[in-house]
Design a protein around this nucleic acid. Sequence first.
DNA 1: CTTATTTTGTCTAAAAAGGCAGAATGTCCT
DNA 2: AGGACATTCTGCCTTTTTAGACAAAATAAG
Lengths: 330, 330
Amino acid sequence: MRKNSNIEDVAKLAGVSISTVSRVVNKSSTVRASNRICVEQAVKKLKFKPNLIAKALVKGKSNTIALVMPRYEGIFYSYYALEIIRGIGTICESLKIDLLLHITHPNTNLNLSNVGGIIFAEVLSERKQLEEAVALNIPTVAINNLIKDLAVSCVTINNKQGAREAVDYLLDLGHRDIAYISGGNLTQAAKDRTQGYKLALAARKIPLRGEFMIEGDYSRKSARDAAEKLLSLKNKPTAIFVASDDMAQEAISVILEKGLRVPDDMSIVGFDDNPSSIYGAVPLTTIRQPLMVMAQTAVKELDLLMNGEGKISRICLPTKLIIRDSCLPR
Amino acid sequence: MRKNSNIEDVAKLAGVSISTVSRVVNKSSTVRASNRICVEQAVKKLKFKPNLIAKALVKGKSNTIALVMPRYEGIFYSYYALEIIRGIGTICESLKIDLLLHITHPNTNLNLSNVGGIIFAEVLSERKQLEEAVALNIPTVAINNLIKDLAVSCVTINNKQGAREAVDYLLDLGHRDIAYISGGNLTQAAKDRTQGYKLALAARKIPLRGEFMIEGDYSRKSARDAAEKLLSLKNKPTAIFVASDDMAQEAISVILEKGLRVPDDMSIVGFDDNPSSIYGAVPLTTIRQPLMVMAQTAVKELDLLMNGEGKISRICLPTKLIIRDSCLPR
DNA sequence: CTTATTTTGTCTAAAAAGGCAGAATGTCCT
DNA sequence: AGGACATTCTGCCTTTTTAGACAAAATAAG
C-alpha cells in the first residue's frame, strides 16, 4: 500500500520548508521564483496532491456540499429532479466542489457536520432537515421552494405564474373544458402549479370541476391512469394541462391509443420543456423552466454564502411558454 | 456563528479526559459505568457530534465513497442508471456511508485523495479514471463491467445471456425476422446485449440483417427514430428486441401510432423490467435485472474491501425473462 | 500487602495553514 | 562603498480535532 506523498516529502525534496510548499501550492503569497520552480518540480515528481481532509480540518470548513433529495419514486424519476442532479453535479465538477448526495427520507437525520453547504432540491412538507441545517448555521439553498421564515437562499421559478400562462394559453384558444393532471401535493412546485391552474380559471369565472382535476405523482403510470379517467368521462375536456412533460407524453400516448387525435380532438400543454418533448408523436407545447440555470444559480449562491461574501437571496427565474403542435383553437 | 462543541468541551463538562470521551463515543474499550453515564449526558447536552473530518484524518481514511457516472444524457436518464444511483444512495444512507457523486466526463481527472472507495456505475471505453483509482490503491467496484485485467471487484449481470434469452424466446415463438434496437456502444452492457442478439440468431443459423440492427442510445428519441426506420422497411420484422424498457415503450408508442397492433402485428421484448413496464399500453415482456441487489452488492463488497476484510470478487447476478403481453407466436 | 486487573490520563500522530519573527535582499543616501 | 531602512521571503511553531499507544493510577482479588 503505497502512501501518498505529503507536503513534508515535497518540502524535503525541494529543500525548503513546509510553509513554502504550502505557499506555492496555494499561491497565497510571493515566493522567490527559483524556489517556486523547485517546489513545482518536486510536486510533479512526487505526484503530490494536498490532502483535502487535512485542509478541511485546518480551514474549519470543507469544500463539500450536500445535495438532499427525497427518495420517492415519482419525484426522483421526474426529468426535473434528474436534470437538477445532473446540472449540479456537472457544475460542482467544474468548480472543484465535492458533491455529497443524500437520497433520503425527509425526516431522517442527516450528518451535516462535515459539510460546507447544502442544497435542498425539494423541500417536502416535513422540514426537519432544513431547520436543522439552519440551526447549525450551515449555508443553505433551496431549489423550487420559497422559504420565507428561515435564513435560506432560494432559487425558484414562478410555478404558479407558469401554470397560469399555460392555462391562459388554452383559454385564449377558446377552450373552456380544461382538465388538469397534477404532480401531487408532496412538493411546493406541484402545489403551486395546481394553484396556477385554479387561478387562471377563476380569473375567467370558469367554475372548477372536480372530475377535471386528477392527482398524479410525476410517474408515467399515474399520468396514464389520469388520462384514462378523463377520457372515460361523459363530458370530456377539450384540453388538458399536465404538470410535467413526461406525464404529458404519456397522456398523449393514451389519447392516441384510444383512436383520438392530438391536437385535433384534445389539446395538451405540459410543463418542463424536457428535450424529448420536441420529438414525440406530437411535439409538445409546454412551459420551459431553465433547469441548468437553476442548478448553476443554486451552486453559485451557495458558494458565495460559504465564502461569507453573499447574503440570503431569493432568486426567481423566468418560465416561458413554448408553442409547438399539441394545441389547436377550439 | 456558534461553533460546534468538540470532544474537549465534552471532556471538561463530564470531568474526564478526552480519551475517555473517545472511548465512550466509539465503544472501543471499557469505561466505568458512572463515567460513561456522565459522558453520555455531556454528549447529549452539548449535542456533540464527532468531527468526521478530524476522524478521517486520524484514521487515514474516510467513510466516504464516490459514485462515478458518465454524464451522457441517454445513459444518465436511463432507468438503469437512475435506479443504481437511487439504490446506492439509499443503502449508503442506511450504512452511514457518505456518498460523493461525480457526474463526469470519463477522461476527466477525479480528485480521489479523500475518498475511501469508489464505485464506477459505468466504465466507458476510456478507462483513465478506473486505472488511476487502482494505481492509488483505492478499493474499487465496477458495476456492469467485467474488468479482468485490474484489481477491481465487479458486480454484473450476464447481459449477453440475458439478451440471448430474450431473442431465444422470440425464436421459440416462431419469429425469424427479429430486429434489434441497441443501447449504443458506449457501455459494455449495451455491447454485450448486442452480442447476445447476434449469438442467438447465429445459433439458429439465421443470417444477420444490417437493416434490422439499429443503434439507439437509451433515449426515447433514439428509440422513436429506430422504430420508425424499422416500420418503413419493405420487409418489416415481425418482432423487435429492444435494449431497454424505456426504449421499448417508445417503440410500442410508435407502432400503435402507425395503426399497427402490439403484439398482434409486432412482438416486442425489452430489457430492465422497469416498473412502469407493467402498466403501459401493452404490458411488456422483458428481461429483469436485479438493480437494487446490484447496488446493494456493490456497496457491500466495497465496504469489505475498505475494511480490509474482503478480496477482489467477481459477482454475476441472474437475469430473468418476465413474460407479459407484448409477444405472440408467429 | 502484593499481584492482577481494570480504568484513566498524558502525549503523540495525522496533514496542512497561517501568524510571527527573523533572515535575506533591495534601495537610498551620504 | 558603507550604513540605515524598507521590503520581500522564509522557517518555526502553533492550531485544528480525534484516535490510540503507553504508562500511571485506581480498584479488585487473594
